Amino acid sequence: MFKKILIATTALTLLAGSAVGQQAKVLKYTHYQPGREDQPKHAAALAFEACVEKATSGSIDVQIFPAGQLGNATTALEGLKFGTLELAVVHDGGISSVYQPFDVFALPYLFPNHETAYKVLDGEFGKEFADEMLKETGIRLLAYADNGIRHFTNSKHPIKTPADMQGLKMRVQPAPVFISLMESLGASPSAIDWAELPAALAQGTVDGQENGVTNIMAASLYQSQKYVTLDGHVYSLHAYLMSDAFYQGLSDTEKQAVETCVVEARTIHRDMTRATDLAAEKTLTDVGMEVYVPTEEEIAAFRELAQPAVRKHLEEAVGAERVEKLLQAEAEAAGSQ
């Protein structure tokens, strides 16, 4: 009898061990847009979840935390570095707080259209940049997606020329490169975290800000911002970032699933954001904003002030070679269209 009990106990122990061994790997996934399917980040996250769980037969359990539920961008990036968070989709300003070279993408009036940006980011420059980030941070940059073409908004008056920026208190992302941009145009920059921006605008702490249409709509910034100028000064980025410690713990099949599914997510993310960008004038007019579309000559006036000043800052902050490589990659991409 004792022998039978011992055999049964051993069998149960082995079965329990086998079940533990087959337990799904949890992939916590955070982003900073509302958890609604009309939001590009969330629609992309849902697609990634379904794709990965199907491709791995459930060996990876994707758990989505929208609207910054796991903390701000800096907190998320630290979690990725130290392996307490698996995946985050973070905006450019937040990334540069941990990896400053990301500021290079904030060079104003760089990309003439979405297609040029995609060629640069999906090409050799984007790949080399991701490799450098991985080596320095332990964070794996899986894909680049749109955060929207950035435009100026404010509550005081229309902005048609750089002179109209003079004296405006403008919110910027907590990144020195955006401070340099505002100062070059004569505005007074104030670094405010994204989560605090709607209240800062509503309370008049700042007069205006700069963001893409998707974010203006997602946070209902139009409620306190009367005027918008569609100057498109920065092609703003989101990046799909994964803890390399988590990635290295995946099987080859699971790694392939993550890499394939993040491309699907990126495509949805880009397509939705780009569509909103292209419909900016109508979208913002419909919610009551006064929209100004500057001429090419007017945009050139902004570029002449902003680009040299920001380029000088970037060359000092992230290196002249990196800035030159980006400009060369952009020129080649634009020339190939």
Results as ranks from 00 to 15, higher is better:
E304F: 02
A257Q: 13
E264T: 15
G249I: 13
I216E: 00
D286H: 14
Q209P: 05
T205R: 15
E290S: 04
A239S: 14
S243M: 09
Y222S: 11
G186M: 06
A195V: 08
V213A: 02
T283Q: 06
E296Y: 03
T276V: 08
V258R: 02
A218G: 01
Q223D: 15
G212D: 04
L278T: 10
Y227C: 01
A245Y: 09
V258P: 00
E304D: 05
V228T: 06
E183A: 06
T267G: 01
D207I: 12
E290G: 00
E210R: 10
D207R: 12
V206L: 11
Q203G: 12
L278H: 11
V287I: 09
H233Q: 14
R274G: 03
V287K: 03
L185I: 08
V287M: 00
V258M: 12
E281M: 08
S236W: 08
M272I: 07
E296N: 07
K282S: 11
E290V: 05
Y240W: 12
T295Y: 03
F246A: 03
T267Y: 00
W194R: 08
E296T: 09
V287L: 03
Q256N: 12
V206C: 09
Q256R: 14
N215W: 13
P294L: 06
L201M: 14
A300C: 06
D286F: 14
Y247V: 02
T273Q: 03
L221I: 15
A275F: 06
T285A: 13
S180L: 09
L197P: 00
A280V: 11
V262S: 01
T260P: 11
T229M: 11
K282P: 04
A306V: 06
A202V: 10
A219D: 10
V258A: 07
Q225P: 02
S243G: 10
A199Y: 12
A200Q: 11
L201A: 10
M217S: 13
Y292H: 12
V258F: 08
G204Q: 14
L250A: 10
D271I: 00
N211G: 13
E298R: 04
S243A: 11
V291A: 03
T295R: 00
L284W: 00
P189C: 06
R274N: 05
A219E: 10
S236Q: 10
Q203K: 15
V293P: 01
V262G: 02
V206W: 04
M182E: 12
T260W: 12
I179A: 04
V206G: 02
R266S: 04
S243D: 04
A245I: 13
L197N: 05
A301Y: 01
I192E: 08
S188L: 13
V293Y: 02
V293C: 02
D271Q: 09
I268L: 08
M182P: 01
M217I: 15
T276W: 04
M272H: 04
L237W: 00
S224A: 15
V293S: 05
L185H: 02
M217K: 13
A200F: 11
